[in-house]
Design a protein around this nucleic acid. Sequence first.
DNA 1: TCTAGGGATACTC
DNA 2: GAGTATCCCTAGA
Length: 290
Amino acid sequence: MGNPKQKWTSEEEEALRAGVAKHGTGKWKDIQRDPEFNPYLVNRSNIDLKDKWRNMSCSANGQGPREKSRTVKAKTNSDAPATQVSTAQTAVAAPVLRDAAVVPNSDDSTKAVPDGKNSSQLVVLTPDKYNTVIFEALSTLKEPNGSDTSAILSFIEQRHEVPPNFRRVLSTRLRRLVAQDKIEKIQNCYKMKSDADASFGTKTPAPKQGSQPRPSQTAVHRTTSTDVVDEAAVAAAYKIAEAENRSFVAAEAVKEAERISEMAEDSESILQLAKEIFEKCSQGETVLAA
DNA sequence: TCTAGGGATACTC
DNA sequence: GAGTATCCCTAGA
């Protein structure tokens, strides 16, 4: 951690791309050892390759905000020298191979989601709604020991069209919310703060933990305006999330009812047809199947 | 031993 | 302060 950051050069990135094209993802040690790429990657470990590829994958399809500003300033891939790896570069123009499996919605418009929905039917998730959907997920899942990142991600993906790097974004957001004391983390799982739950249901925010006993008049002054606004925002986000979730559940229930109704109608038709066939057969008629 | 995933932190805007 | 890039740690195969 104390080590200074060693930025990846264009040559290193190209070598990594070429290495992945040659060996495939997950073969970081092979790539690192490959004499074809080793001169470029001599300063990088297999872990570094994995991390860099993960990072590149996040910004592969242009959605990731990671490098879009940075590449302009510091290093652009377009001005990378045409080295021996340039041919392989075309083979792996964008590092999305592994992500296609890890992030099911990478760039597939027919993203497979539960209930047979595709992404075009989902609400596109914008950054300003990240916290809202996180609260929505946590408040809905209500796991006693908290929900892990995958569960939260899965929940959100069922309801929203998320960017391909959302898992990482989600992870960052969750950590931030924990740091802000808005949610709590138990091992690798996250859950709504128990006191937050209580405060959401009441008109007045719960007093800050660790605050000392004091006259009620000074207590007002000790709560900063930003805290009040912050808690109000969280409470509002929670309420919105709750309302959205109820709406979603209601809509799903309606769809399910309609589906069952259709199935019942189909069953009725089949039953009627079977009856007719049975009657004709009983009368000695020959029934030909279509 | 190697990889994947998550966390920590330096860096940039 | 928020987002991003890189480094580090750890569990699991």
